[in-house]
Computed example of a mutant assay.
Amino acid sequence: MNARLLPYMLILPVTLFLGVFFLYPFVLVAQQAFSGSDGFSMANFRDVFSYWKFPISLKNTLLLAAIVVPVQLALSLLMATMVSKMKKGRDLVLYVWTIPLGISDLAAGIIWLAIFEQSGFLNSMMSGLGVIDQPVNFLSYQHPGVIFLAIALAEIWRATAIMLVIIVAGIGLIPKEYYEAAEVFGASPWKRFTKITLPMLRPSLQTALILRVVLAFEVFAVVAALGGTLMPVLMGEIYAYQFDLLNSNAAAALALVVLALSIAFTVIILRVLRVPKGASI
């Protein structure tokens, strides 16, 4: 085989997979989103943007991502730094911390529902401490802040391990000689973290943040389990358009809106965390 053709042959299976399972469905969704009774039309987008739930679901989605992702980033950096410094039990601790990765979104929502519902752990604990006289329905329209908090906690618990695994792998690729040299010159642990770890982790942070932000925009099952219709999000509205309102064109239009948001934030993350040319540690 010609050596020049070998790289193209190696990437051919992945290219075919993306073409069949991503590009082709994307074209079909785009056709649905921009189609109307008279052919090409923006009516589906106008319907979506004018619906009273759209600004609420957009605000909830962005607010949830803005709170959950930074908390997960801070936690994953702290946990990854702790794991990288451990001499014994490192694999066991990392395994325990990544257990939530094996739990589905819906299962995670049900687990946290068992904590916040009227007969759940939180009510039992508060009743046992004498804080309340009777169970409180925390997940009702009267407590929107508690619903948001429950969803945020469930997402933080469920998906922090995604970023943790990527960052642990990134820290493992940093040469130990950098830390040894910095320690010889008297750099404090914080200096070593900010001047060595963070700059060298930029590629890993890019990957972790892009993946987590995209998944944050696609949150659905956890919200459905804990908030139901009391906290609308974009993916929930796509589901409602497709299966409740039987309007697949509007669902496709809203799906493209979510895709556009994901692409926009991906570009922002790539620009903010880009590695300057000629930069050195």
Score class of each variant (00 low, 15 high):
Gln31Thr: 09
Ala33Phe: 06
Phe34Tyr: 12
Ser35Pro: 09
Gly36Tyr: 11
Ser37Phe: 08
Asp38His: 11
Asp38Cys: 00
Phe40Glu: 14
Ser41Gln: 01
Ser41Pro: 05
Met42Trp: 15
Ala43Phe: 05
Arg46Ala: 15
Asp47Thr: 14
Asp47His: 12
Asp47Ala: 15
Phe49Lys: 02
Phe49Pro: 07
Ser50Cys: 04
Ser50Tyr: 09
Lys53Met: 09
Phe54Ser: 02
Pro55Asn: 02
Ile56Gln: 13
Ile56Ala: 14
Ile56Phe: 07
Ser57Ile: 12
Asn60Asp: 01
Thr61Ala: 02
Ala65Tyr: 06
Ala65Val: 15
Ala65Gly: 03
Ala66His: 07
Pro70Arg: 01
Val71Ser: 04
Val71Met: 08
Ala74Ser: 07
Leu77Trp: 02
Leu78Gly: 14
Met79Glu: 05
Met79Thr: 03
Met82Leu: 15
Val83Phe: 11
Val83Lys: 02
Met86Tyr: 02
Met86Asp: 01
Lys87Asn: 09
Lys88Tyr: 10
Lys88Trp: 07
Leu92Pro: 01
Val93Gly: 08
Tyr95Ser: 13
Val96Phe: 10
Trp97Cys: 10
Thr98Ala: 12
Pro100Arg: 04
Pro100Lys: 03
Pro100Leu: 07
Leu101Gln: 05
Leu101Gly: 04
Gly102Pro: 02
Ile103Gln: 09
Ser104Trp: 00
Asp105Ile: 01
Leu106His: 06
Ala107Gln: 08
Ala108Phe: 06
Ala108Cys: 12
Ile111Leu: 15
Ile111Tyr: 12
Ile111Thr: 10
Ile111Trp: 04
Trp112Thr: 09
Ala114Lys: 12
Ile115Tyr: 05
Ile115Gln: 03
Glu117Gly: 00
Glu117Val: 06
Ser119Gln: 14
Ser119Asn: 15
Leu122Tyr: 02
Asn123Val: 12
Asn123Ile: 13
Asn123Asp: 08
Met125Gln: 04
Met126Pro: 02
Gly128Glu: 10
Gly128Lys: 04
Leu129Tyr: 06
Gly130Lys: 07
Val131Ala: 10
Ile132Met: 07
Ile132Asp: 05
Ile132Thr: 09
Asp133Cys: 02
Gln134Gly: 07
Pro135Cys: 11
Asn137His: 13
Phe138Arg: 00
Leu139Ser: 06
Leu139Glu: 01
Leu139His: 03
Leu139Ala: 04
Ser140Val: 12
Tyr141Ile: 14
Gln142Glu: 14
Pro144Glu: 10
Leu149Cys: 13
Leu149Asp: 03
Ala150Asp: 06
Ala150Tyr: 01
Ala152Asn: 05
